[in-house]
Nucleic acid binder design. Structure first.
Lengths: 196, 196
DNA sequence: TGCCGAGTTGGAATATGATTACAGTATCAG
DNA sequence: CTGATACTGTAATCATATTCCAACTCGGCA
């Protein structure tokens, strides 16, 4: 993959809707070319193939998401408070870019075949949460749990709830009411379902 | 799709590993034919195409999963107790058939394009949980929460934790220690992360 | 001004794999 | 035995990704 100009990158983002709308295999290069205004020969000049275009779009979004999540995780507050901020930031990123978010979750099961993307997902979703779980056990604001399973549980809870609302929306941005959904998700993640 | 003999169905299940291993588009009909021992002409005689074969495998597994989940949900116990049984049953179904489970989650983002499958997922995963959430609010064993979001949270927590372990395994069955994982997931779903 | 190289583009050529068509074979109920 | 239905091998057909290549643009620069 050549280095992509910001101009080209901006056009390519329009292609996310094509991938999200039709699914990876049904999204033809020609449709991608039409949607972005970039001729297919130019696409092949800049990328090794369709898969690399997909990977670029995912990486682009994940990198931006990582940045806002990294900001959310900072600060002197307890781990529990910062975990809430992280979850809100992740849901906001999904609501802001429903197409890419849908693309990403469509690739979930085969993400181990896109190692760079798997790393970026770790960076944006798993590692921040794992870090807070450790810190929360230390500062007493979070219960002590299996990091591995708790990270997976939170990742699943956040992304599939986001996906549910994204699919229900019709590509509007934001795709859903981030505050309301985040409040519900955070409530469940922090307090669980048990009556008390 | 013609009616599929149990004999053919059994052979086809061998094909799940091909879909799971390579991903839908990289899985060629020829590879599917080799893996199952069913000639490609026979596949096309019985199914309208590759997508329908995928759909059959998913439906097959989801139907079986629905049955065990429906059994788990029965009984006089509180909704909380039965919710735990349901989650265990769902994780057990995933561990028992890692290939199909991986196939299913690979199709998550495009599942709205396979309406029958989306229905079957509702049947096996969402509806039982939604039912218990309502009953739990009545019998007092579960907190009152948004059914829509809580259902999505639990679905995400269960399936992505399962997927995490399935991907980590190498196709062995069971793919992971169901009891241990279920205990962690149920603990988080019921009690959350908050220290108490 | 005129050249150079990188980026861009249109269009033809190639390759792969899904799907179809069809004819011949097997199986099984009556 | 016979007809119907299911199965299978082979040879097209077709769509689409990918490659190839020649022409074109354009900014820097001697």
């Amino acid at each position: 993959m050549r280095s992509i100009s910001t101009d080209l990158a901006a056009k390519l983002r329009l292609g996310a809707a094509v991938f999200a709308g039709r699914g990876y295999d049904a999204a033809t290069i020609e449709a991608l070319s039409d949607a972005t205004g970039v001729p297919s020969s130019t696409l092949y000049y800049n990328f090794a193939g369709k898969q690399e275009i997909l990977a670029f779009l995912l990486q682009d979004w994940l990198d931006r998401t990582s940045v806002v999540v990294a900001t959310a995780i900072e600060g002197p507050a307890t781990a529990a408070v910062r975990l809430e901020a992280v979850i809100r930031a992740q849901l906001a990123a999904m609501a802001d870019d429903p197409s890419t978010c849908q693309m990403l979750l469509a690739e979930l099961g085969r993400i181990d075949r896109l190692p760079h993307i798997a790393d970026a997902v770790q960076q944006a979703f798993h590692r921040p949460v794992a870090k807070l779980l450790v810190e929360g056990a230390v500062d007493g604001s979070l219960a002590e749990v299996s990091i591995e399973n708790a990270t997976a549980v939170i990742y699943g809870a956040v992304t599939l709830t986001g996906l549910h609302h994204v699919v229900a929306s019709d590509g509007h941005t934001p795709a859903f009411d981030v505050d309301a959904v985040a409040t519900d998700v955070v409530g469940l993640v922090m307090n669980g379902l048990g009556s008390r």
